[in-house]
């Protein structure tokens, strides 16, 4: 996954602990310019924590994050400069937009926050609403008038207001009707192409990943299991967990049901060992290093599939 080009976002051995609970441990990946990184894993695997860390809503307990090569600094001025260049879309559109504000205020908020509100701002907001497929929306209407899909469009307009280079999408369609999901995905893909956006896309939808993602990071219990080119991993996964996850996603069953356990036992060595059919004594004792299968493809397993 290492390119010659400077990555937009770079997680370097990032660990995030909450008291004794480890949400992320030693997570590394890069988001390449103009490319889409898919972030998959079951609930509680740390996907959303990655997004929150990238947005500076939380700080790594160890390790570091770089944006365009520069490590994150949490001094407010520098954080603000980074936030100026990152757009985001949250999972729950009903919660992500303040019901007390008008569309103009919501979409204009990033502009105001960065002192970019001027005479053309209203026109710009209009243009954004047109672009996200809400040409008839009144700038003075409130979000309560819109359904989930409409709200997510408004959130997308807000995310694009500052013309970011990176867009973070945390399961942007999981709270929407099936009919609406495809529309929102198509919109996001169009925008990604026309603006050359780099994207992090958190999702459970494997066919979607196969279709849109360039790179893939598979998380399990806060650790990276496998990481590499999305289409090839999807076609021929190497890590046992990826195999299980992908087949569960394919079968459209919640993959957790395979074990009947909401909180599977996690080994401090390989976290997947308790569930793995290939586990050997070594897997319980040592942490598997990330072994390159190819220069751009790493698997954290002692016995990856060939």
């Amino acid at each position: 996954m290492s390119g010659l080009e400077l990555p937009i976002l770079h997680f370097e051995h990032v660990t995030r602990r909450y008291d004794r609970f480890i949400a992320l441990e030693d997570v590394s990946f890069v988001v390449r310019k103009g490319k889409i990184l898919g972030l998959v894993g079951e609930s509680g695997s740390g996907k959303t924590t990655c997004i929150r860390l990238a947005l500076g809503l939380e700080r790594p307990s160890a390790g570091r994050i770089r944006f365009m090569g520069r490590p994150y600094s949490y001094r407010s001025k520098e954080m603000k400069a980074i936030r100026r260049r990152i757009g985001f879309i949250f999972q729950d559109p009903y919660d992500a937009l303040d019901p007390h504000l008008t569309l103009e205020e919501i979409i204009g908020e990033p502009l105001r926050a960065h002192g970019l509100w001027n005479v053309t701002a209203r026109e710009r907001i209009r243009g954004l609403l047109d672009r996200v497929g809400l040409p008839d929306a009144s700038l003075r209407s409130y979000p309560t008038r819109y359904s989930g899909g409409g709200l997510q469009r408004i959130a997308i307009a807000r995310a694009l207001a500052l013309e970011p280079e990176l867009l973070l999408c945390d399961e942007p369609t999981s709270n929407l009707d099936v009919s609406m999901q495809a529309q929102i995905i198509n919109l996001l893909m169009e925008l990604q192409r026309e603006r050359g956006l780099a994207m992090v896309f958190v999702t459970h939808d494997l066919p979607l990943i196969r279709r849109i993602a360039d790179d893939l990071v598979v998380l399990y219990a806060g650790r990276v299991m496998e990481c590499g080119p999305a289409r090839e991993i999807a076609a021929r996964p190497r890590h046992p967990y990826t195999i299980v996850l992908l087949s569960a996603m394919e079968a459209k069953i919640p993959h957790r049901s395979a074990w009947d356990e909401a909180n599977p036992p996690v080994s401090p060595a390989c976290p997947f060992a308790p569930r793995c059919w290939k586990a050997q004594p070594q897997c319980w004792k040592e942490r598997p290093p990330r072994i390159p299968v190819r220069p751009d493809w790493e698997v954290a397993c002692f016995f990856p599939e060939e």
């Binding site: 809503l57 603000k80 729950d92 919660d95 992500a96 937009l97 007390h100 504000l101 990033p110 926050a113």
Partner: peptide, 26 residues
């Protein structure tokens, strides 16, 4: 913890403005 408050933080909005615009009205 609400999404729109975290969103305001994540877009770089000043803290006092978040307090006045997003929290006080609620």
């Amino acid at each position: 913890r609400r999404g729109f408050v975290e969103a305001a933080v994540a877009m770089g909005e000043a803290r006092y403005r978040i307090l006045l615009r997003h929290i006080l009205p609620h």
